Amino acid sequence: MPEPAPAHKLPWSVLVVIHTPALEVLLIERADAPGFWQSVTGSRDHPDEAFEATAVREVAEETGLDARAPGHVLSDWGLENVYEIYPQWRHRYAPGVTHNTEHLFGLCVPAPRPVRLSPREHRDQCWLPWQQAMERCFSSSNAEAIGWLPRLGGLRRQ
């Protein structure tokens, strides 16, 4: 039987940059913050959930894509960001939690495709060349992660 979910979000999350071999990047627009475009993100469900498992789960929940499907390559970039949680979202975390640690992954898919968004989380999607995706992201850490794509994503595609 799975553990019950914690009462508060855990301050350990993943950021998954979904991209094609041509370095086109999927961005999704937050439903609760129109104009805030981002990659797939999400917190661990439990303290012992592996970051890779979190990445696979969040990609499925937010886009309907299977990160382990044939032709898809999920890469752990071995990078982490520690950032201050935006004040408007701190109520989701335990009292006193102000920072989150985010683990970075890339997911290479063969070509741009429409994805199935979770309407309570996201309202729109687009595929953009990596430079344009960097410019559109509201989060500087997300933009920086996309900036790593030509080096990390290009080296790890198979």
Results as ranks from 00 to 15, higher is better:
2 P>T: 13
3 E>A: 14
8 H>G: 09
9 K>R: 15
10 L>S: 10
10 L>M: 09
11 P>K: 05
12 W>P: 08
14 V>E: 07
15 L>T: 05
16 V>T: 13
18 I>V: 10
19 H>N: 11
19 H>A: 15
20 T>N: 05
22 A>Q: 15
23 L>S: 14
23 L>T: 11
23 L>P: 08
24 E>I: 07
24 E>V: 06
26 L>H: 02
26 L>E: 02
28 I>S: 03
28 I>D: 04
30 R>T: 00
32 D>N: 00
35 G>M: 00
35 G>Y: 00
36 F>D: 11
36 F>L: 12
37 W>P: 02
38 Q>K: 04
39 S>M: 09
41 T>N: 09
44 R>Q: 11
46 H>N: 06
47 P>S: 12
48 D>A: 15
52 E>N: 11
53 A>S: 15
54 T>K: 11
55 A>N: 02
56 V>T: 14
62 E>S: 07
64 G>Y: 00
64 G>W: 04
65 L>V: 10
66 D>C: 03
67 A>V: 05
67 A>M: 06
67 A>S: 05
69 A>W: 00
69 A>G: 03
70 P>M: 04
70 P>E: 06
70 P>I: 05
72 H>Q: 07
73 V>S: 10
75 S>M: 06
75 S>H: 12
76 D>C: 06
76 D>I: 04
80 E>N: 13
80 E>T: 15
81 N>W: 13
81 N>R: 13
83 Y>F: 14
84 E>K: 02
86 Y>D: 12
89 W>N: 06
91 H>G: 14
92 R>V: 12
93 Y>F: 01
96 G>Y: 10
96 G>D: 10
97 V>Y: 04
97 V>E: 06
98 T>S: 14
98 T>G: 11
100 N>L: 14
100 N>P: 07
101 T>Q: 11
101 T>E: 10
101 T>K: 09
101 T>V: 12
106 G>P: 04
106 G>M: 01
107 L>I: 07
109 V>Q: 05
111 A>P: 07
112 P>W: 05
113 R>G: 10
113 R>K: 08
115 V>R: 00
115 V>M: 02
117 L>M: 02
118 S>Y: 09
121 E>L: 12
122 H>G: 00
122 H>E: 06
124 D>T: 07
127 W>I: 01
127 W>N: 01
129 P>E: 10
135 E>Q: 08
136 R>W: 01
136 R>M: 06
137 C>I: 03
138 F>M: 00
139 S>H: 03
141 S>Q: 12
142 N>A: 15
144 E>T: 15
144 E>A: 15
146 I>A: 05
146 I>M: 04
146 I>K: 01
149 L>I: 10
149 L>E: 12
149 L>M: 13
150 P>M: 03
151 R>H: 14
154 G>L: 03
156 R>A: 13
157 R>Q: 15
158 Q>R: 15
